[in-house]
């Protein structure tokens, strides 16, 4: 793998203090915003969507700027894509199964239908 970082001018990695201050302000505003939205007491699905969206933006800002993922070596990006792929399966499949569990709890009828001789 060619070493791209070594070839780049040294100052490309220089920490950008102004950018940090701007991100700090944005993070504080977003925190207040998410608390304020929560105070409105929206319906749960809407509240979760908004809350998750704001958290994603905040997390993205920290990762991109503070962890300097923006402009990081592509190897690190590739490693993170791999993890995201596996984490996606780790999260979705058990959650889907959890929904089936809820379905059984709220709809016991199909279970009874499978064992008609046990009914009264």
């Amino acid at each position: 793998m060619p070493d791209k970082t070594a070839a780049a001018p040294h100052d490309a990695h220089r920490p950008n203090v102004r950018l940090f201050a701007a991100v700090f302000g944005a993070l504080l505003c977003l925190t207040l915003l998410t608390v304020a939205v929560s105070r409105l007491r929206l319906e749960r699905p809407e509240a979760i969507t908004v809350g998750l969206l704001i958290a994603l933006i905040k997390g993205g800002l920290v990762a991109a700027v503070f962890m300097h993922l923006w402009g990081e070596n592509t190897l690190v990006h590739r490693v993170l894509y791999t993890v995201a792929f596996f984490a996606a399966f780790l999260m979705t499949l058990p959650i889907l199964d959890g929904h089936y569990f809820v379905h059984l709890l709220t709809n016991p009828a199909p279970v009874a239908a499978q064992h008609p001789d046990e009914g009264h």
Partner: peptide
């Protein structure tokens, strides 16, 4: 007792 749809997957 897992979801049968997941079993297929």
């Amino acid at each position: 007792g897992m979801s049968p749809a997941l079993s297929n997957f």
